[in-house]
Design a protein around this nucleic acid. Sequence first.
RNA 1: GCCCAGGUAGUGUAGGGGCCUAUCAUGCAGCCCUGUCACGGCUGCGACACGGAUUCGAAUUCCGUCCUGGGCGCCA
Length: 452
Amino acid sequence: MSPDIIERKITYSLTTDAIPDLPMRIPIQDVTPETERAVVIGWINEVRDLGGLAFYILRDRTGFLQVTIVKKKAPELVLAAAKEASRESVVRVTGTIKATEKAPGGRELIPETFEIISRAESPLPLDVSEKVPSEIDTRLDNRYLDARRPRVAAIFQIRSTVTHAINNLLFDEGFTNITTSKIVATATEGGTELFPLAYFEKEAFLNQSPQLYKQMMMAAGFEKVFEIGPIFRAEEHNTTRHLNEATSIDVEVSFADHHDMMDLLERVIVCAYTSVAESCGSELEALGIELAIPETPFPRIPYAEAIDIAALSIDEDIGYGDDLSTAAERAIGEEVGVHYFITDWPTEIKPYYAMPYEDKPTVCKAFDLMHPRMELSSGAQRIHEHDLLVTQIIAKGLSPDSFSFYLQPFRYGMPPHAGWGLGMDRLIMTMLGLQNIREAVLFPRDRHRVTP
RNA sequence: GCCCAGGUAGUGUAGGGGCCUAUCAUGCAGCCCUGUCACGGCUGCGACACGGAUUCGAAUUCCGUCCUGGGCGCCA
């Protein structure tokens, strides 16, 4: 390479007239000891300057590469640029690859050009190289830096893989993907608090669940639908497993019952784990996780038995008809030790749309999917008969009037159907053993955080 | 919402009435260093959340405010 070209490479920036000259960039993982020459663009992860010899560790999303500068031999412009380059600056380095046992990955880059594309200010808001840890709050305030860490990036790569795999599975099984509105008028589905919002002259809310819309699509004859999207809950909870904005994987299927839906849920969970085990080897390694794929079928424990299991190991009184406390959930989880279902819930503690057993209406065809650490999903066969649904809404102390848009489809040919909602964030959290659900979400929304 | 813990350089921390002109690490700046991989060595830079009170004296005790983490509750 002529000195003239070296000079241009060092001085030009990424303007349009420079791009035609941009040599082909190589992802770092593709740089092997056999590579002869390489153009690499990445962030400076760290610098080790030994005096006559300096090592610049470059990082891109595919890995790390050591750039070795022998100061007596390196071009002056390389030395000048390298000296100016702060940690976490984006740089482009061109040079020859030398195979050497002494460098990480068995190869190093001897630079001929070294240019700073975007210089990082100093000090950094957090230490990307993780020599010094950062608290979750600092990390979330600076998520773009936090996510440069391979361990953090791995979580979101895995999450993306899970999304892809579940989409594929559901499409393969003949599902139709739907997108429903997150802005709704119904204030009282009962239960959770909703976020109110100003919708012109009307009152509106952020939707807590696509439940009612999924069911309406059963009336529309779509038979098998799914949606992966945000849900919003205005609860003031302050825990490591709750968010005010979560991602829900929702499905609804016509002519299916709760058993069919538990079977589907098992397939989805196994598919998620399998896809990660098969295609996220390096990410799992970065996280130090050996992923065990859950075995099916998952135990299906009737509610009445579940509270007995809980009562064995905790002090508090659990009466039939009580919801499971955190301690009870944990006690059952420890006893069972694997994913499991709690089935046959008391009708009174499940939503109005859960179908009661014909021969025993105090119990309904609802189920929860539990990971030993926490609830992941709940579902049910739904009521498809209009009058029974109205009865149940009234029994829950709700007003059928505010559900008219939802109830009307039940009068014009509603097929029997069942479905569930699965918490994506908790799925990732439990799969990877994360201690805080915020680790599984890029920009979490909790009781206090609305930015970034 | 209730309860507990906490807020000290950019980051993570030590210190809980005078030993504080505040510890250590990392970072940053300078100098030395040709095989580092948490490189090493020397020098320097940089902080007690805010307001009030108690006290001869407050980072330290008390009150209030703001902020944060966690547990529980809540989560059709």
